[in-house]
Design a protein around this nucleic acid. Structure first.
Lengths: 235, 235
DNA sequence: ACAAAAGTGTTTCAAATACACCCATGG
DNA sequence: CCATGGGTGTATTTGAAACACTTTTGT
């Protein structure tokens, strides 16, 4: 590195980027947001939206800023997933990337300047990805499956008012397998209705055409926090 | 930044460091490894061992290299904890740090050049820490408590051959509370002996002076993997 | 009348909890 | 002979699992 630089710490430094794994759920399939790269390296490959860090922002801000720039999407909440730092993960020079994941609902992305295309993909039907993004995706799915039980952020994937069938379909998408609807419902109507984590609501507008009208529920953050407080480890 | 630099990506870049939260367990208390800083900023404050990234290494390698340099300790395994990137977390310029955590047993650290002192601290009696390291520690404890049930790395905190009382004391240290010894033992002698995750061994050297000779167990990685395979999510 | 989506019910079984008691050893 | 650390046993309760049946409505 040129010695005539403004840094106080005289250390080599990698380029630093932040990427986003954004999930959404259309009521049937879990989707993940990908952008088609307009530039080298990996031109025309699909990749998770993201970009380079700028001065005076946190990496989370980098992630959200780039996501908005490239796809016009802004999730309410993001979580850190992992950091990728293999020296040759970018063919040109060493770039470390910090990956965040988030959930959104019912949003249509708009492709921006440096992305040729933006699209939701069924998580079980992904195209080939740029860089080490397939490895990133594997980590994201693992995190997803680990956290669905206790991370209330998951409810961001559902409408504010949802049915237990909706919730069940979400779980089935996350684990890519069928669950027993009866036991699934019982679990939530006993365990979770006692804790009030989900609460019944009178659904105002009934849009779906269903043989029988389902009950609707909403997620209660305050009850969730109450539950977490009480739920201590014992033996 | 000076324009005459060798980087292909012409972006601003922060200094990047890696830090280590290293836990150990002396049979009674959980400890964490801290170094006393010899240099500014935060001179004479205690901090987690770590340092700046060098070219052509991964962040995990950075963490392990710095840990070895500063304390002479090399854990068998490390895991990523989080990334800290608040612009003002370092008073001189923006430094992002990727934090790793690991477990070791029975090692004495040796202070090195750029650390005035190295010491194990009871995790419930920590001194004031440098930078945002107290926030890092809070995250580390949370991770610890979340993962003790299913992360086999935890057994690295025990001797290869351990008693169920040892294991119980470890849990008690992690959660900072007492467990019912009877139920704790039953849990491991039923659930986990069936899965063979821990297996009884004939203890060779009996060093402790106890009223009654306890049974000794060892952790079985292969049985753990077998268990994880079978343990599927259902409803 | 029947398919399709939604709801409820029962029985069983495994695991967590909350308890009490016995055993061996060193002082 | 008793305190201490270690081991075993039993009753209760809870939640998960594996099952079948009923309700509503559009066609």
């Amino acid at each position: 590195m040129n010695d005539n630089h403004p840094y106080k710490y005289k250390y080599w430094r990698p380029a630093v980027s932040a990427d986003n794994v954004v999930f959404s759920f259309d009521g049937k399939d879990l989707k993940v947001l990908l952008v088609k790269r307009k530039n080298e390296p990996f031109k025309d490959f699909w990749a998770f939206p993201g970009g380079f860090m700028e001065e005076n922002e946190t990496l989370q801000q980098t992630a959200l800023r780039e996501l908005k720039e490239e796809t016009s999407i802004t999730p309410l909440e993001t979580r850190e997933l992992c950091t990728m730092s293999e020296p040759d993960r970018d063919p040109r020079e060493q770039v470390i990337t910090v990956v965040f994941y988030s959930f959104v609902r019912n949003v249509k992305p708009k492709a921006a300047d440096d992305a040729a295309d933006v699209q939701w993909f069924n998580i079980y039907e992904l195209p080939q990805l740029a860089f080490d993004h397939e490895e990133i995706f594997t980590k994201a799915i693992e995190k997803l499956r680990l956290s669905i039980k206790f991370d209330p952020m998951f409810f961001a994937l559902l409408d504010k008012e949802f049915t237990l069938s909706d919730l069940c379909r979400l779980w089935e998408s996350v684990f890519n397998k069928k669950f027993d609807r009866r036991n699934f419902q019982k679990h939530w109507t006993t365990f979770s209705l006692i804790t009030n984590i989900i609460q019944p609501v009178a659904k105002s507008s009934e849009d779906k055409k269903l043989p029988r009208a389902p009950k609707y529920y909403k997620y209660s953050e305050s009850s969730y926090k109450e539950f977490i407080k009480k739920n201590k480890v014992r033996f």
